[in-house]
Structures are given as C-alpha cells and as structure tokens.
Design a binder for these strands. Sequence first.
DNA 1: TCTTTTGCATTGCAGTTGCAACGTAACCAA
DNA 2: TTGGTTACGTTGCAACTGCAATGCAAAAGA
Lengths: 204, 204
Amino acid sequence: MPKRVDHRERRKLIADALMRVAAEHGLEAVSLRHVATEAGVSSGMVQHYFRTKDEMMTFALSVVHEHSEARVTRAVAALGDAPSPRTLLRTMLVELLPLDESRRADGRVALAFLAYTAVRPTVAAALHQETAGLLAFVAGQIRLAQAAGTADRRVDPDRAAVGLLAIMEGLGVYLLGGHYSPETALAALAAQLDLVLGPDEPGK
Amino acid sequence: MPKRVDHRERRKLIADALMRVAAEHGLEAVSLRHVATEAGVSSGMVQHYFRTKDEMMTFALSVVHEHSEARVTRAVAALGDAPSPRTLLRTMLVELLPLDESRRADGRVALAFLAYTAVRPTVAAALHQETAGLLAFVAGQIRLAQAAGTADRRVDPDRAAVGLLAIMEGLGVYLLGGHYSPETALAALAAQLDLVLGPDEPGK
DNA sequence: TCTTTTGCATTGCAGTTGCAACGTAACCAA
DNA sequence: TTGGTTACGTTGCAACTGCAATGCAAAAGA
C-alpha cells in the first residue's frame, strides 16, 4: 500500500540533519525550514514525516540516545569476552565523554536536549529508565569487583555508581565548555576508578 | 547629566525577568518582548539598556554566576571562623546543588546557558577563569586536609578537585532532570567526600 | 481501467522575532 | 531661557516561525 519508502529511515535522515543544526548552532536554531534545508529536502517533506515540530524533537531525542548506546555497545563488544569490571567501566565511561570532535558534536546536542527536557518534564520521563538501567549496571560491576577482592568492600556500590555516572556527566559538561583538557578529564576519571575499585595493578 | 537612574539596577531588573522566563520556559522563550512583559516594562526600555539581544544574554549570564557566587559566599560565611576543609567543601558543594525550588530555578537557567555557551565559544571564555579559581580553591582545601592528617595522602589533590567539581556538576544535571532524589545526590556527595578526605569521624 | 492511498512540493497565513526609527518628556548645564 | 542629553514609549518593518491547505505524481488495489 505504501510507496515502498522506509519511514524510519526518512525520519532518521531528518533527525540527523536536526542534530547537525543543533550541534552547530544550538536547539534554538532548529526550525522546520532550517532542518529541511540541511537535510536537502523540502520543508513539506519534513512535515509529512513529523506532524508537529515537537514530534520531530522527541524523535531526535531518542536518536541521540540510540547513538550513544550504540557507541558504548560497539566499544564494549571490542573488549572481547569477560573483561574485568575495571576495564569495562573505564571503556564505557570514556566512550561517553566528548573527547573527539564527533563525540563533541553529539555531546552538544545531548546538552541542548538536557536543557530542553529540564523545562518539559513530560518528555524527560523516558530518560529516567535509561539512567536507572545504566546505574544498576555500573553498581553491578562494582559489586563484581568487590567479590573478586580487587575493590574496597567498604564503599557502597550504589552510591559509588551514582558518583561515577555523575562524574562522567560533569566531566562531559566541563569538556564541552572547554574548561578541561581531555587529558585532565581522563586523569580525573582514572583517579575516580582508583578510588572506587582500588588502585590499578598493571600486572593484572 | 543622567536622569539619576541607576543603570546597573535597571539592567539587573531586566536580567531577573529574563531568568524567570528562562527558568520556566527555557532560553528559546526569551525574546525582547517576552522579557519586557515579564519585567513589567516596555520593550523599548529593554532596548534602551541593551542594544542587542546578545548583549542582554551576556549580561544575564554574568548575573547567573554572581547569584551562585553570592550563595556560596553567604553559606560559607555562616560557618564561622576556620571551618574544617571537609565542612567547608561540603557546604560549598551542597549549596551549588539544585536541591530546593529556588536553586532549581537557578540551575535550569545555568543549564540553559551551558548549552547556549557550548555553541558560542567566545562567550564561554569568561567562565574558564571562574572554574580555574574554584578548582584551585578545592584543591587547596584537600591539601589542607592532607596536611592535617585526616585525608589519605595518596590521592592527588588536583585530580580529586577536578573529580569533586565534576561530581557536583553531574549531580546537579541529574537532579534537574529528576533522575535522582535530593537524598541520593547528597549521599553520593558525602560518599565522595569520604573517598577523598577519608571517612568522616563524628567525634571530630 | 479506475479509484484510492501514499509521498512529497508549493503556497499561504497569522503570529512572532530582533531591531531601527521616531517621538516626547524630564532633567541638567549654560 | 536655551540647548543638549538622557530615558523612555510607540510604531513599523522585513525576516522568520509553525502549520494548514492544496496540488499532483506515482504506485497499489479494485
């Protein structure tokens, strides 16, 4: 019945253009026409795939998170089987930091959406589950390290997981603002992992 | 020669209105007319005190930072003379977290400006010094605690200071997004202080 | 073949935006 | 008093906004 067009693909094409605009000029520069031009399509087509601007924004927000999720999944898969909790956590968190231009672009968009959702609580609800899942995973890894005897058992895994995610988020913000250099951020993250999991032992 | 009007006061009046608009609807809702209405003045007057919108935004950004600086100064002053590094740091960082509605409003504005400056690097430059100063202060307090023997000397004060600020920033972001409860954030912050300065001893 | 659905482009519109221009009233120095 | 400066208020405008409406070609079913 349809004209054999992949809806999801078109929507992603548009969302990608939106993210490019947002990464360069901020979310306030995102308009139907602007996005359409960036995507190289007519503004009528954008309207065809998103009935309202808000619908487009919400979809783009979900794409942003798919992006970072895919990034992490890929990096973790490259670690091979059964990496140590420390390696796993470091890989994950480093991957989420805006350290190169590609991730900086994504980070700027994510930051813009963060401010966007802070004012639209209904849109933000979907993100809570994601954070909760990530949190549980990190806490689980810390528990694993503790069980293996490499980590100090006096640290509370849940609290430490909250702190670890917060430090990643905070470092990301400071990196985007240009306040810290990548080296500084990486050193701080490594130091935090040392604090939580115990000092690193090169001869693991 | 002037008509005896305090320029700075008028500008702050307008900036306050801007912050109210931004806290409620985001920075994208900030327009000359909107701000003027919120401030209860004519849009012509806003234009009289700010020749361009960008000038208004930049000024408001500086007011936001004066706000949080004043907040911290007041809270620290209330501690009396020579508070312990731990108390001082905790007070400072807690004061910067969006834990009540007043600070949440400020936090939303700060977050919006964070995204704003991330796309306008020239405006962001002024903030670097502030972060650097804060960082040096925190590192100094950690060094003090180490010298007093209460803190583990194996932790690097500079790295730990970066981490502490980042964790504060990250917790703030998650709090604004509603991902964490104030209790969770406070517990995570306390745990981090324990990690950096050593476990708290009630009978100090 | 005819009809219906889908994909997309164009046009139009009411509302909003930043900003310039102009007006006027109050004040101050001469 | 005169002239100049300051402090606004009002109006206007070109550009842009989201969105509805309309048109039309291609494809799929009848």
